[in-house]
Simulated assay, not measured.
Amino acid sequence: MIDACRDALIAQAVWVVQVPVAVEVGHLGLMTKLVHGESGQWQSSLMVMPLPKNDPQGYGSALTYARRYGLATLVGLASETDDDGEASMPTRNRAKAADKSTPPAASQPNAPAGLPKIDGIDYQTVAASNGKTCVIASGNAREKRPLLEQAGFRWDGNRKLWWRYAA
Rank of each mutant, 00 (worst) to 15 (best):
H27G: 00
V35Q: 07
Q124V: 10
A137T: 00
Q108E: 14
D119L: 03
V21N: 05
A22D: 11
A113E: 15
E143S: 13
K117M: 09
K132P: 00
S39N: 07
R164P: 09
D84V: 13
R92M: 14
K53H: 13
V14N: 06
K144C: 10
Y65F: 14
K160P: 00
R145Y: 00
A151M: 04
L115K: 04
V35Y: 08
Y69T: 14
Y65D: 08
E80G: 11
M31A: 14
D99A: 15
A128C: 04
V25F: 05
A87D: 12
L148N: 00
A141E: 02
I136Q: 05
T102Q: 14
I10S: 03
A111S: 15
D55G: 12
P90E: 09
D3L: 12
R142F: 01
Q41Y: 08
Q108N: 13
A105V: 04
W163P: 08
Q12W: 01
K144Y: 03
A87G: 01
P52M: 01
L46R: 13
S88E: 11
S61A: 11
N158M: 09
A97M: 08
N158G: 12
G58N: 03
D3G: 15
G58P: 15
L148Q: 00
P103T: 10
L161K: 05
P50V: 10
A11W: 01
V75S: 05
